[in-house]
Amino acid sequence: MMQAEGFFNLARIIVGVMGDAYGHLSQALALAELAPQHEYLFLGAGTVREVVKMGFSFLEIPLLGTFYANNKVDIAATIRNGSKILLGRNPLDKRIIDQIERFSPCLAITAYEYFTSIIAKKLGIRCISLDNQHFLNKLRFEMPRGQMPSRFFYALPLRLMFSKADHYFINSFFQFPPRDSETTDVFPPLLRKDLMDIRPADGEHVFVYQTSPTFSKLIPELEKSRNRYTVYGYGEKPGSKNIIFRPPSRAGLLKDLASCRYVISNGGHNLISEALFLGKPIFSYPIHMAYEQFFNAHMVRNLKYGDYTLEVLPRISHLARFEEKLAEYRGSISTGDFCGNEQIATKLKEKL
């Protein structure tokens, strides 16, 4: 009971974040924005280091990230990295634990970060999982056919390594009933304030975002089109007659996203949710062997928010057919609920 009172007055909270991309970091920051009166210590590596510039405390811990090659999960490299960390010397050495104990947290939140639930158990505090990934083993739904190898390599670490929290907050642009309502709650997407403050408009350019710059075949195909493309994820470099490459920038990304005709992305949940909140149809090239991305793309098509392809070679003809249905997609998107911030804040208060 003391922890519950502390959370809503003034609490110290550790927030572990998977830092191999920006999606989980964005969700963790959105949660911190819901309750800015508390003190947060962010745990992670990679993109999580950026919280220091925002005024948050940060402690680096090992990163069990995912590696990519040619728009596909590099399973061998991902396993090698994980094995090196987990089978080496104790990744949670005494120095890390001592610093967290001095912070004296009363709650742990994990945004798909492996070590946070372990730390929470060591400290005897509650751990809440915040992500979309746990739809696979925490929700009831009809599984689409195919993608068995991808589903296996996704489900195995999900169950064995990332399902050790006490409670699960699954936020998603699609909602299914939980298998256990006592330990799992389901919400629309959790969004950052800077996104919610933007007023969208229908511009002329197409917004392109790639989780990894390894999808090298996409850009030459886009150059065959008459469309104008604003591209994030490949770094800043010289463009072409119809392509502009943007450097990483949250403000720039949101401005270009809000003013585009539609979005071309992989299958990352966070970018899809942000685009849908702004009313933008999605065409997805999900990363192969990343089952969550396939399922997100499947739901985009199923809910008529857009379409996807699993073909290795991108083709402009896919986009041409997609563009014929933009009005239909926008109509479907207009009926959706893509912001669960208030519901998540309320449920946190109830649970804690």
Results as ranks from 00 to 15, higher is better:
M1H: 14
A4N: 12
A4I: 10
A4M: 12
L10G: 14
G16N: 02
M18W: 00
A21W: 00
G23E: 00
L25P: 01
S26K: 01
Q27A: 14
E33I: 06
A35G: 10
P36T: 10
Q37F: 10
Y40C: 02
Y40A: 00
L41T: 00
A45L: 06
E50F: 09
F56D: 04
S57M: 10
E60G: 06
I61C: 02
I61V: 14
P62L: 03
P62H: 03
V73E: 07
V73F: 03
I75R: 01
T78D: 04
T78H: 04
I79S: 08
I79M: 11
R80S: 14
R80C: 12
N81G: 09
K84Q: 12
G88C: 06
N90Q: 12
L92N: 01
Q99E: 15
R102V: 14
R102F: 12
F103S: 01
C106H: 09
I109R: 03
I109T: 06
A111Y: 02
F115W: 07
T116Y: 01
K122F: 11
K122M: 13
S129H: 06
N132E: 11
Q133C: 13
H134V: 06
H134I: 04
F135H: 10
F135I: 13
L136I: 07
E142L: 13
P144S: 11
P144C: 10
Q147H: 15
F153A: 11
F153L: 07
L160G: 09
L160Y: 13
D166M: 07
D166P: 06
F169H: 03
F174M: 05
Q175A: 13
Q175K: 14
P177F: 05
P178V: 07
D185W: 01
D185G: 06
F187Y: 12
L190F: 05
L190A: 08
D194T: 12
L195Q: 04
L195C: 06
I198G: 02
P200G: 09
A201H: 15
H205I: 08
V208M: 02
Q210S: 15
Q210C: 15
S212Q: 08
S212P: 10
F215V: 02
F215T: 04
I219Q: 01
P220L: 08
P220R: 09
E221P: 06
R226E: 13
N227L: 15
R228E: 14
Y232Q: 04
G233C: 07
E236V: 10
P238H: 05
K241L: 11
I243V: 12
P248W: 06
S249M: 05
R250H: 09
G252M: 00
L253T: 04
L253I: 06
L254H: 04
L257A: 08
L257D: 05
A258F: 03
A258P: 01
N266E: 04
G267W: 02
H269V: 05
I272K: 00
E274V: 08
F277K: 02
L278G: 07
F283L: 09
Y285V: 00
P286Q: 05
I287M: 03
M289K: 03
A290Y: 05
H298S: 08
H298G: 11
L303H: 04
G306E: 02
D307Q: 07
L313G: 09
I316F: 11
L319A: 08
L326D: 04
T335F: 15
C339K: 04
N341E: 07
E342S: 14
E342Q: 14
Q343F: 09
T346H: 13
T346R: 12
T346I: 11
T346W: 10
K347Y: 13
K349F: 13
K351E: 15
K351F: 15
